[in-house]
Design a protein around this nucleic acid. Structure first.
Lengths: 250, 250
DNA sequence: CTTGACACTGACCGACCGGTCGGTCATAAT
DNA sequence: ATTATGACCGACCGGTCGGTCAGTGTCAAG
């Protein structure tokens, strides 16, 4: 006997509209369904209403997992620990993820999406292309200097992705996400080019500059911490940016 | 009861002078002592002749360990595996290292020293400063493109070092080793400066350039593999080198 | 030959891990 | 009230790991 599990289409909307359910229900992870919308009106006999927003909970668990990962690394983080951090039982995690690897992949993807979204919204708030580029770089560095675990998270992500290159089912979206970070910078550069602030030879060069910039930023942070802070981070970054802005982009 | 273990001072020299001992002895890790040099002549009653060169064996085990690490990563490598690769029993490893962490640190240090030594000897064979710098970069990249495990090893090293920053007793030497890689490039640049090929403002700038270059090379390799080869590696590196040689160093 | 320090070994240990599964509970439908 | 089901849980399982230790082999001194 095969059951067809189809998500009730309005579950999302109704869950969002009533985010602060009672404490006891919330503790159980159950989102109450708004009265007046009897599910029977919206589903046929094969559909079953879900009591929780599974997508959201999956996201919550992945987010909690990423928090633990960034402190201890992926290998050193047990599923028990993740369960504790997420406030659920270990068995529950396996309701949402097929394996630890799948959960890690999901956690990384969400983490990347947050970063990309943050970078995008930041760059949208600034008009001047040069200032926008500088702000992007400075904010990226600030994130790493603010708390050291950020760089440990990054390095853990790189390690997991690299050691799972064959496992494309989960890690393809992650690899695609890298392209997004480049695209943000390419857009900044191209915008500056159109405004006459930057001078480059076509979008191809903008992409090269963007890829190199992101790679450099990650690399310099890595070396900064790995070398035990044996140089001044911002001095190095400024040196890079100086030549980028005065040579490549002029 | 505390035993004072003092290495027989000439053990090193004699071990080196007779590197190819008989197979059976070698299998047991025992280096025969050259006849005609009765140890009694060289030690007083408190000193005891060692039958093996402990420093060398420690190095051998660490080297074998690094070989396994680079294939499987640190966490996925058990002490049994290392013991098998090194051709010794697991218990023997604990004669030479107090813990797995200590062995990892030793293995990383030896690995770094080999890299540094390789880079140094490479750069000594070339006269022209610009060609020397280009060759250094190209060889570094060739190492990473030749076999993918090289980048996995690097990333594992970064991860272990970063997550053991507090464990300074073992990882301080590793952090110092980073300085050496910079120094090699600084020397190339300064040599080019003295020969009138490069034009920089003092050694301080040479150091900035060197640190940024090494960081960039690591970063671009990382992104290349992590993004699943979504750009051409050498094109990016050439782009960086072009601006470095034509803007920063001219 | 005996002795004793040294080097080495792998069986063994307890802790822990990823993953499973039988069972509980709250709610919805009847 | 009863039944059905989605959601959740943690005890449990097979297996692995880092680390230990009692015992063996080796060699040189006595």
């Amino acid at each position: 006997m095969i059951h067809k599990h189809v998500l009730f289409p309005l579950a999302d909307i109704r869950a969002q509209s009533n985010p602060s359910s009672s404490l006891s229900l919330d503790k159980l992870g159950i989102l109450s369904i708004v009265e007046g919308f009897p599910p029977s009106l919206f589903r046929d006999f094969t559909m079953v209403a879900k009591l929780v927003n599974k997508d959201q909970k999956r996201r919550d668990i992945a987010q909690a997992a990423m928090g633990v990962f960034s402190e201890r690394g992926f290998d050193a983080t047990s599923m028990n620990l993740v369960a504790g951090a997420a406030g659920v039982g270990k068995g529950t995690i396996y309701e949402y993820f097929g394996s630890k690897d799948e959960m890690i992949a999901a956690a990384i993807l969400i983490w990347l999406e947050d970063i990309i979204e943050g970078a995008r919204s930041l760059s949208q708030r600034i008009e001047d292309p040069e200032l926008r580029l500088r702000t992007f770089v400075n904010e990226s560095m600030a994130e790493f200097t603010r708390d050291q675990s950020a760089i440990q998270t990054s390095i853990s992500v790189f390690q997991v992705v690299l050691s799972n290159l064959d496992n494309s089912q989960w890690f393809d979206p992650i690899q695609s996400a890298f392209k997004e970070t480049w695209r943000i910078i390419v857009q900044i550069i191209m915008d500056g080019h159109e405004k006459g602030v930057f001078n480059i030879h076509g979008q191809g060069e903008a992409e090269k500059i963007a890829i190199n910039l992101v790679a450099y930023l990650d690399g310099i942070c890595l070396h900064y911490y790995a070398s035990g802070g044996r140089f001044d981070l911002m001095t190095q970054v400024d040196h890079y940016m100086e030549y980028l802005l005065e040579s490549s982009l002029k």
